[in-house]
């Protein structure tokens, strides 16, 4: 009789380890009305993306208890009545931003936590050492080409989409870019117009919101965007080969390098992730990753041996390892 079938295909909500014990809620139910792109399409349905987490939690409890009822509140009451307190927390955390957390957990805490997890071997771009490596690097051209175009992923699962948008925009006029009505007459790739008709055949917007893209799917998307991708899987190649591929890609102004790795393995919060690679620093044998989850971490220099392990991780969707996608303009 439950309205939400709780055991269904997991949404990315459960990514954070602290939530692992909680039975996964099908947030697709929420998204169907509250919309995946954050814009409400049904007149009386509010936008909840970015609403205060505390408010959302209280509202869900008020619906569940029947305190809020009557009219359209009956809809939310029907949806909320079978949610457990833990599931309410989970949904509130997914859709909400909690002001108190922003105040008490500045980004340096996150960085410190992850640096400790990685034995202090990650060097963030925002540190003195991190900035110095960019200047010292002989493979830093892509940093200046790509960094201006990096925008944060619009959903937790949109790392691949945000990465493709940044990389494709960095080709500037060497690539024919779509023109959105909102930005007319300026051509620009966005996390929406990446989904052209061909790409929607590969995976719909909603599908990517649910569980992102695999490395193979990233390759497919790119073939439909007028560039030539080649995917390189870590389990089929040595660490030397992977490093050489990165260095060659960074050396060629017509090529960009996309990284698919498990960020948990390099000591950061999270798991499967995609971001552009911006530079290689020979003296420290580390790679600069322009994180498209800028709300979590600034760009980080990751030692090549850690990065290789993080690419060897098996993607549970594709059952294959992760790796690189080299993107070349025609």
């Amino acid at each position: 009789m439950s309205i939400l079938r709780l055991a269904f295909a997991a949404f990315a909500v459960a990514a954070a380890p602290v939530l692992a014990e909680v039975q996964t809620v099908n947030a697709q139910t929420c998204l169907s009305c509250h919309s995946v792109d954050g814009v409400a399409h049904i007149d009386h349905v509010p936008i909840i993306h970015g609403q205060s987490e505390t408010y959302l939690r209280h509202a869900l409890h008020a619906y569940k208890s029947g305190q809020r009822s009557g009219g359209t509140a009956d809809v939310m009451q029907a949806v909320a009545q079978d949610l457990s307190a833990a599931q309410i927390d989970q949904l509130a955390a997914f859709f909400g931003t909690d002001a108190s957390i922003v105040q008490t957990a500045p980004i340096s805490h996150l960085i410190k936590a992850s640096a400790e997890g990685a034995d202090g071997r990650l060097v963030y771009l925002t540190t003195k050492e991190g900035s110095a490596r960019v200047v010292e690097s002989r493979f830093n051209g892509d940093y200046f080409r790509v960094a201006p175009y990096v925008e944060s992923e619009k959903f937790l699962t949109f790392c691949s989409i945000a990465t493709m948008a940044a990389v494709l925009n960095s080709f500037e006029d060497a690539l024919k870019r779509p023109i959105d009505t909102a930005r007319y007459p300026y051509p620009y790739f966005t996390q929406d117009n990446i989904f052209n008709e061909d790409n929607q055949q590969v995976k719909t917007f909603e599908g990517v919101v649910t569980d992102g893209l695999t490395l193979d799917q990233i390759g497919l998307f790119l073939t439909h965007l007028d560039v030539r991708p080649s995917t390189i899987f870590a389990d089929e190649n040595s660490i030397e080969h992977m490093r050489n591929a990165i260095m060659e890609g960074l050396s060629d102004p017509a090529v960009r390098v996309i990284l698919n790795y498990n960020r948990g393995i390099v000591g950061q919060n999270g798991s499967g992730h995609v971001s552009p690679i911006a530079a290689y620093h020979q003296p420290s044998n580390s790679v600069l990753v322009l994180d498209v989850a800028g709300y979590k971490y600034p760009p980080a220099w990751i030692p090549m041996d850690m990065l290789y392990k993080a690419m060897l991780d098996v993607d549970t969707s594709s059952k294959r390892s992760r790796g690189l996608a080299l993107v070349r303009t025609f």
């Binding site: 309205i3 139910t29 169907s32 009305c33 399409h41 049904i42 009956d74 809809v75 009451q77 029907a78 949806v79």
Partner: peptide
């Protein structure tokens, strides 16, 4: 009867 529509 109140029909409550939880779909979009």
């Amino acid at each position: 009867w109140t029909f409550v529509n939880t779909t979009a």
